[in-house]
Design a protein around this nucleic acid. Structure first.
Lengths: 189, 189
DNA sequence: GTCTATACCTGGATAGAC
DNA sequence: GTCTATCCAGGTATAGAC
């Protein structure tokens, strides 16, 4: 990987601060201090605080979108597709936990890119719901309420970023097996 | 129920605003406008913006704590206790969706009550984990990773507030059956 | 590319009249 | 109990020297 630019560094550090306090509570002076510079100097690299949020959120939203497109084009059955969705969320949560926090908690502070973000999210959920509904039709998935199932899986998957950084003793493969079991196979003996 | 006081009304309206934009992005002037008064007038009823957050978050955290204490003192088996936890979260999410948003997203902005809140949450999770670990020992629950199971269930249950207000076509009994099935019995056919 | 200085605005909160 | 007026701290962002 090529060396991180100053702009990328600012975005990475900003995401970390946003995770801790939320977008609105982080000031440009906070960010500058963490970067070891003055607030005014930040503006040589980025246009505005808002632009930082956009870069973080939109990049990840597009990652999910392209990941989902790959999944819906495979010939896997529904359960396999759900497993691939789980893997997609785990991958992104491991790579970019801080950015996911902004995506999950601060998307409403997007200004010009808000509509675009909402469209990407809507499309993602529609694709997810289709996989579930197809699985039920094919008898691969139990006849539960598709909306409740999607909500339940997405809640867990969207919260992974909160939890993965704290559990370094659980490796990725192990986590995937556990999540597949718990989310898809149930826990009652 | 007795008539809502002006203070209670302010707290209720504040919770609704906090849900929409987050604690830090809501101004006392926003809140005053929604209340049909000037910002200065709010201070005849509440001490500070911080005090509003405290009232919202601590009240709900204590609801969860007392609910959990009732559950761990019943003689139910582990699966039944998990079902009771699900029911507790559904109940509170229906009663106070807006307050739950503050609890989940804005707890880090608590000042003097932060340590108390963190202790309540820690105790709650410890009790939850004990129920799971006991269930595995008693062979009532599959031998999954207890931490991943708790995380997964809590992620779904803590997100209910985001989702319940949008789905008025699903009634509470129906939702409980679906959540019990999905969270405990799995979805794979 | 970073600094100092600063413009300009909006935030939470208080004082005191009514 | 609500208002107007106001304080002052701190927010984002820009200008211009180095």
């Amino acid at each position: 990987m090529s060396k991180e630019t100053r702009k990328e560094e600012i975005i990475r550090v900003a995401a970390k601060l946003f995770k801790k306090k939320g977008f609105s509570a982080v000031t440009m002076r906070d960010l500058a201090t963490k970067m070891g510079m003055k607030a005014a100097s930040l503006y040589n690299h980025i246009d505005s605080k808002q632009a930082i949020l956009q870069e973080i959120v939109i990049a990840i939203a597009e990652d999910f979108t392209s990941g989902m497109h790959i999944i819906i084009e495979t010939k896997s059955n529904s359960i396999e597709k759900l497993e691939q969705i789980i893997a997609l969320h785990v991958k992104i949560a491991i790579e970019n936990a801080d950015g996911l926090s902004a995506l999950n908690s601060d998307w409403m502070h997007l200004e010009s890119k808000l509509d675009y973000y909402l469209k990407l999210r809507q499309d993602y959920e529609n694709n997810f719901r289709n996989i579930i509904e197809n699985g039920i039709k094919q008898n691969e998935i139990k006849a539960v309420n598709p909306e409740v199932l999607m909500f339940s899986m997405l809640s867990t998957l969207r919260s992974l970023y909160l939890w993965i950084p704290k559990k370094e003793d659980i490796n990725k493969a192990n986590l995937l097996v556990n999540l597949n079991d718990i989310l898809l196979r149930g826990v009652e003996n």
